[in-house]
């Protein structure tokens, strides 16, 4: 078993069950992808989902902002509540949910527009016209995403001219420009080199002062480095959910230990 450096979980204020997943099950057609998941995610903390490929991490993550609605023939049971309100509440607009719950994808997906337009996209969507406001949001978001210094001279160039790491940070900037409360990240560093990965991890650390972050990762080191709490899934089931320290130092389930020590996955 590899020894991992684990950040001590810092206790900050905020609700313990900011996101509350209750007995959540999920089907793609007849295929059950998730089975009775129950976990609470505290406010302004980083929670990592780990587990072998195909265990349902992304599925669960995409359910948090209902991105799975785009898939045909899906079905769920149980409930997910954010700030005590069910995301399946018929009165809740999916669009407003997604404005509160931002998402960064595994493969960076900047729009084929300028860097500036990418960052302010969410504001444009809600009809913000005020140029000064847009510029201000663009700058603060890019600063928060630690990208400002690299791109400030070419804000109006195409975003597609950026490097892979820069694109991913641009996507993060784009997500936080929307001022969400929660940021979902699905393997945000899987396509990046170590230096870019380092920058993004640093970023996550800073962002958790403001956002509740759920990150899916297949890198245990990353989970250990960035998260306060970690959930381990296996074959669509939640095996263990605890503080990162506990999961990596002293897992209570043998499967968790096996996975963490690299014996399968």
């Amino acid at each position: 078993m590899t020894r991992l450096k684990v950040r001590p979980s810092t206790e900050r204020g905020g609700r313990k069950d900011y996101i509350s997943i209750k007995n959540f099950g999920f089907w793609y057609g007849s295929k059950k992808a998730l089975e009775s998941i129950s976990l609470d995610i505290p406010e302004r903390q980083v929670v990592a989902f780990i587990g072998p490929s195909g265990c349902g991490k992304s599925t669960l993550l995409r359910n948090l902002n209902r991105m799975n609605d785009l898939v045909d023939n899906i079905r769920h049971e149980g409930d997910i509540q954010i700030d005590s309100r069910s995301i399946y509440d018929p009165g809740l607009e999916v669009i407003s949910l997604r404005r509160r719950v931002g998402m960064v994808f595994q493969k960076s997906n900047p729009f084929p527009k300028s860097i500036f337009e990418n960052v302010v996209y969410a504001l444009r969507v809600v009809g913000v016209r005020d140029r000064a406001l847009l510029e201000e949001v663009c700058e603060t978001s890019l600063r928060k995403a630690a990208l400002w210094d690299e791109v400030k001279d070419r804000l109006h160039d195409s975003a597609l001219g950026l490097s892979g790491g820069q694109m991913q940070r641009l996507c993060i900037a784009r997500a936080i420009a929307n001022r969400p409360e929660i940021l979902l990240m699905d393997e945000p560093c899987s396509a990046l080199d170590p230096i870019a990965t380092g920058k993004i991890e640093e970023l996550i650390h800073e962002l958790k002062e403001q956002f509740t972050i759920v990150i899916v990762t297949h890198s245990m080191q990353q989970a250990a480095r960035v998260s306060d709490r970690t959930a381990f899934f296996y074959l669509g089931k939640q095996v263990e959910y605890d503080t990162t320290e506990k999961i990596f130092m002293n897992p209570s389930q043998p499967q968790t230990e096996a996975y963490i020590s690299g014996r399968f996955g």
């Binding site: 669009i95 493969k107 729009f111 996209y121 969410a122 444009r124 969507v125 784009r174």
Partner: peptide, 19 residues
């Protein structure tokens, strides 16, 4: 991925198509 990206930012389907 572009469509998902736009929807995830809270754009409606039509806004996604248009923008």
């Amino acid at each position: 991925s572009l469509v998902s990206g736009s929807l995830a930012l809270g754009a409606s389907r039509w806004q996604t198509v248009w923008k």
